[in-house]
């Protein structure tokens, strides 16, 4: 399944990664090399095999419903790129 330039553009958009026009051919080639490696997997017969998501196959532990956090907004926003009136600022969101 070789990727075309348009596939790479689509993936980059999904991942919100800006693409450099000039790098596109090389990026496409490298990705195709990697996919070539990965695609070896397609030959493996996995019929009837349950997927394994976690090595130990444990189950989720539940936390008691209690408030344990206090307001640390100032500390958290000290490292933010842009804040005003306690809000994180981003370029206008259009709906």
């Amino acid at each position: 399944m070789a990727l075309e330039r348009s596939d790479v553009e689509k993936i980059a958009h999904l991942a919100r990664l800006g693409l450099n026009e000039a790098d596109l051919p090389r990026t496409t080639e490298t990705l195709n090399n990697i996919l070539g490696l990965i695609d070896q997997m397609q030959a493996v017969d996995t019929a009837g095999i349950e997927p394994l998501a976690h090595p130990l196959e444990a189950t989720q532990r539940l936390r008691a419903d209690a408030v344990s956090e206090e307001n640390r907004r100032d500390a958290y926003q000290a490292i933010a790129p842009a804040v005003q009136d306690g809000l994180y600022l981003v370029p206008k969101v259009i709906e």
């Binding site: 980059a12 999904l14 990664l17 990965i38 997997m41 493996v44 095999i49 997927p51 394994l52």
Partner: peptide, 22 residues
């Protein structure tokens, strides 16, 4: 990019699920 592709619509079973089976 590779990961985004592997999870994208139409490829999940062939990649992510297959990898988990392996």
């Amino acid at each position: 990019m590779v990961g985004t592709y592997a999870l994208s619509a139409g490829y999940y079973d062939a990649y992510y699920l297959q990898a988990q089976k392996i």
